[in-house]
Design a protein around this nucleic acid. Structure first.
Lengths: 126, 126
DNA sequence: AAAAGTGTGTTAGTTGAGTAATACGGTTAG
DNA sequence: CTAACCGTATTACTCAACTAACACACTTTT
């Protein structure tokens, strides 16, 4: 069962998209595995203090992408194979890294400065 | 005169916020300097193909933060001192780096992997 | 002085994200 | 079996990010 313990919505990204990201990142990290049960729409919405429809929107997206399987009346569960997983990993990584490198370059930061900064900030609590 | 040549709105961030970011990053990079003239609200909105009110919102934010000065009838111009600049630099850097480190850690990426990835992706054209 | 360009303010509409309340039928545990 | 839980669907509402079209007063330019 996926607990959503360490899920904390933040930033300007819509919550339903953050839920999708949380699942994808967990899958890449290996903490979310094929066959894992998801909490019900109602339970999760109560847990996160958001509307059931917002959770539904996130789960719909995940199902469209083939990452979860749902049937009316029963709980949803993860459907992941290795190929899909490495694809997701590559997508997420290239997107995130493209964003940060673009931002840092626009600020005139050199590659060496960037690496030094990220190295220094890696263990920060925040 | 700030040209907005290399400004390309993208992503889910509101355009008026992207304009603010563009100015701040340019200031940090040194390509935008104290006293520099900004294009008028109307000209910039025509250039970017967006509504004048969207530009106005961006410029209002910049003025609230003291980064530009405006007087009715005349063009707006940058008002930057060294202290404010280093503060902006620190704010932008810590925010961006916090976002990327958080994302990579959630995917189970180690510090060494992260540095290797960013190093490899740095020169990517995209 | 007059025209053109400028910052500023107002009102109104559209779109998408998210909230809210409710209903229906399928699945599962007691 | 049946009650509790579940996925799914519908309708209506709020709110922020824009879009659109003006009007007014100030400045710079000619």
């Amino acid at each position: 069962m996926i607990t959503f313990e360490d899920f904390r919505p933040e930033g300007s990204l819509p919550v339903y998209r953050q839920i999708v990201l949380y699942i994808k990142r967990g899958a890449v990290a290996g903490s979310i595995r094929n066959g894992d049960e998801l909490p019900s729409r109602r339970m999760l919405s109560a847990l996160l203090g958001i509307n059931p429809n917002t959770v539904q929107k996130a789960f719909s997206l995940l199902e469209e992408e083939g990452l979860i399987t749902s049937r009316a009346g029963a709980k949803s569960f993860m459907t992941l194979d290795e190929e899909r997983l490495t694809q997701i990993r590559n997508d997420l990584l290239s997107e995130d890294i493209q964003i940060i490198t673009s931002a840092l370059r626009q600020m005139g930061i050199t590659k060496e400065e960037a690496l030094a900064l990220i190295s220094r900030f890696w263990e920060e609590p925040r």
